[in-house]
Computed example of a mutant assay.
Amino acid sequence: MPKDQTSLANGVPTARPGTIFVLTVAGGISVDPAPGQSILFGRNRPKVHVCVGEDDQRVSRQHGSITYRSGQWWVTATGRLPLRLPEGQRLFPSEDPVPLAAGYTPLFVQGSSGREHLLEVYVAGDSGTRPVLRHRDPTQPPRIWHLSPDEKLALIVVGQRYLLHERHPLPLAWRVAADQLSELQPDAGWTGKRVEHLVAGVRNRLSREGVAGLTREEVGEPVGNALNDNLFAELLLSTTLVPSDVDILDD
């Protein structure tokens, strides 16, 4: 791999489709696709192809591997601790390998004292080229979900801990939220049941529009706070709700 390649996030040099590039701060390699090809990564530099976390004893000496078979690359965890994949997915040593899609995939190796070591992976697609740079193209806005005034106010109150960036946020209980809403709007007839109904209505509407993780069937039992946790993740990611919305509570 070129020595001036400091990241794979912006693409890779033109390469044969299926060629894989793997990079860490300690260096990286590129490998052509061929059955049986395997890339080892971990802390023990002399025994792996790509070194990651070499000064961190929480990283295993051989923490994982990437192998080509059945026409694509597969990542396997072999260390003591799991790998973190995109969207929060964890890959444990006892689990089946996960296929890598064409394009860029960041993998994270958990280290000591809260450290995470980045392992960048890029699989060349059918064109074998890097993505087209779009410096001057208009920014694609997120899909902001329509909320009625009552829905938005109820969601701000119920989800205020998410908006305040608490480390482990939880939604407010319906009755607690109703009490706060009654302080804001004394004559609006807020009750716990009304708050619950409004939030469930938004959740069901977004589910019908294709947002995943908002129904019991998808999440499974026990549900706990998963449905509303997923709802607030979508509302914040889409900027339907933003942190400054909690200012209404101070007013």
Rank of each mutant, 00 (worst) to 15 (best):
residue 6 T to S: 12
residue 11 G to T: 10
residue 12 V to T: 12
residue 14 T to P: 11
residue 14 T to K: 14
residue 15 A to E: 02
residue 19 T to Y: 03
residue 20 I to Y: 08
residue 22 V to L: 12
residue 26 A to S: 13
residue 26 A to Q: 13
residue 29 I to N: 04
residue 32 D to G: 05
residue 35 P to D: 14
residue 37 Q to I: 03
residue 37 Q to E: 15
residue 38 S to L: 13
residue 38 S to F: 03
residue 39 I to P: 03
residue 41 F to S: 00
residue 42 G to N: 11
residue 53 G to N: 09
residue 54 E to D: 15
residue 61 R to M: 02
residue 62 Q to D: 02
residue 72 Q to R: 15
residue 73 W to C: 10
residue 76 T to R: 14
residue 78 T to F: 01
residue 82 P to G: 05
residue 83 L to F: 09
residue 83 L to D: 00
residue 84 R to P: 05
residue 86 P to C: 03
residue 88 G to E: 08
residue 88 G to F: 02
residue 91 L to Y: 05
residue 95 E to Q: 15
residue 99 P to M: 05
residue 100 L to C: 05
residue 114 G to D: 07
residue 115 R to N: 11
residue 117 H to F: 13
residue 118 L to D: 01
residue 120 E to V: 05
residue 121 V to G: 02
residue 137 D to V: 02
residue 140 Q to F: 06
residue 140 Q to S: 10
residue 151 E to C: 05
residue 151 E to T: 00
residue 152 K to L: 07
residue 154 A to E: 02
residue 159 G to F: 02
residue 159 G to K: 00
residue 159 G to Q: 01
residue 160 Q to N: 10
residue 164 L to R: 15
residue 165 H to E: 15
residue 180 Q to R: 15
residue 181 L to S: 07
residue 183 E to Y: 04
residue 185 Q to W: 00
residue 187 D to S: 14
residue 188 A to D: 13
residue 189 G to E: 02
residue 199 V to P: 00
residue 207 S to T: 07
residue 210 G to H: 06
residue 211 V to L: 12
residue 213 G to S: 06
residue 214 L to K: 08
residue 218 E to I: 05
residue 218 E to Y: 11
residue 221 E to Y: 10
residue 221 E to N: 11
residue 224 G to R: 07
residue 229 D to G: 10
residue 232 F to A: 03
residue 235 L to M: 10
residue 235 L to N: 07
residue 236 L to V: 10
residue 239 T to S: 14
residue 240 T to C: 06
residue 243 P to M: 10
residue 245 D to K: 11
residue 246 V to Y: 14
residue 247 D to N: 14
